[in-house]
Each structure stands twice: as C-alpha cells, then as structure tokens.
Simulated assay, not measured.
Amino acid sequence: MALPNIFTQPVADSVIERINKLTPQTTPDWGKMNVSQMLAHCNVSYEMVYEARKHPAPNAFMELILKLLVKNKVVTEVPYGRNGPTAPAFIIKGDKDFEVEKARLISYIRKTQELGESEFNGLMSHSFGTLTADEWNNMFYKHLNHHLTQFGV
C-alpha cells in the first residue's frame, strides 16, 4: 500500500492542516518529547536536505551500518512503532520555540512539495545514499504522520 504523496499539494496541505491544529499545550499520547521538541525533531529530516552543514555526514563505516540496518526501516511503507530508537541527531533537548519550529516545518514541507518528486528522484540522502522519489516520500510522510499521530492530530 503506497503512502500518501507528500510531493502533491493536497497531501502537503493536509499535513500542514494537521500541524496547524497543534498548540503549545498539545500533549503526546506517548513518548518523551513535548510538542515544540517534536516539531524541532521533525525539522531535522529537512535540515539534512536543505541545511546539510548543520549535521555532519556519517563516516563511511557508519553510512554502511545505516544502509544495512536502518535504511529499510526509514524508507519503506512500514509504519514506525511507538517509542522506537532515535538517531542522535534527532534527539531534541531543551526548550524550543513552538511558533518558530512550526513555521520552519511548514516552510520545509511547502519547499519540498514545490520542488517536487523529480527534484528528489535519485538525490543523495544524508545517511542512506541515493534514494528514489518514493523512498524520499516514505521517509518524509511516514515520519510526519507518526509524530502528528503521536500528538493526536
């Protein structure tokens, strides 16, 4: 079963609509992050595409490990389970500004949708090598859906 296509405007709009239902007081149904940390956490996937210098690339050995052990969990259609392991770059500590993180995430989703599938097909990822547009879609949509569901939207 294919996941909704985050590169299409209707899907991007529906995800943004869900994000807009969040408030600084929204609490998770599971997990340790507050809503502002979750938004910052979701931004990391996009930072790795649009602000690559912010996150050092893994060395060759770590990239091999990521491709062998993590890639299929991230880029397939299989949903994430609750309270799964989180890569160090995605662990958000301390307070984050809800409005800033929300605006950043919406901006990244819009930019990704406007660039479209063709821009991502065959694009090198930060950790997993070259990905297809479907793999990028699965990675972006599945992660967003997982955390928006975590926060009840």
Rank of each mutant, 00 (worst) to 15 (best):
I65S: 09
A133R: 09
A133M: 13
M38K: 05
T27R: 13
S14V: 01
L68G: 08
K142V: 10
F140V: 00
L22P: 11
E119W: 15
N5I: 11
E17I: 02
L123N: 02
N145T: 02
A52I: 11
L105Y: 00
R53P: 02
V75A: 00
D95G: 10
N34D: 03
N20Y: 05
H55W: 15
Q150R: 01
E119N: 14
P10M: 01
N145G: 04
M124I: 03
N34P: 03
W30N: 03
W30D: 10
E117C: 10
K32T: 13
N83Q: 11
V74N: 01
W136A: 01
H146E: 03
Q150W: 00
L144K: 04
A60V: 13
Q9H: 11
T23P: 10
A52C: 08
F120T: 12
V70R: 00
L105T: 01
V35I: 08
K142R: 14
S107L: 11
K21R: 13
G31W: 11
C42T: 06
T86R: 14
E119M: 05
L131S: 01
G84Q: 12
Q37V: 02
V44W: 07
Q150K: 06
R53S: 14
I65V: 15
P88E: 07
P24V: 08
T130G: 04
A2K: 10
D97G: 05
G152V: 05
G94N: 04
P28L: 06
K21P: 06
N43H: 09
H146N: 06
E114Q: 13
S125Y: 01
N72T: 07
N137W: 03
N59D: 13
F90Y: 14
Q150F: 02
I65P: 03
V70P: 02
C42R: 04
L148M: 08
K93S: 15
L66G: 10
M124L: 10
R110H: 12
D29N: 12
R82Y: 12
V70L: 14
L39R: 07
Y141W: 06
N137G: 01
P28D: 07
G116E: 07
T27C: 03
P24W: 10
E99L: 11
A40K: 14
G129I: 04
P58R: 11
S125A: 00
P58S: 12
V49F: 12
I6R: 05
E63T: 14
M38R: 08
N138G: 07
R104Q: 11
H147K: 05
V74T: 01
N72V: 06
I16S: 12
N20V: 04
P85A: 15
K96R: 15
K32S: 04
F61V: 15
P79A: 09
T132R: 01
F128R: 10
T76P: 14
L3D: 02
L69N: 06
Y141F: 14
C42D: 15
P24H: 10
M33S: 09
E77S: 15
P4N: 00
I16P: 03
G84T: 11
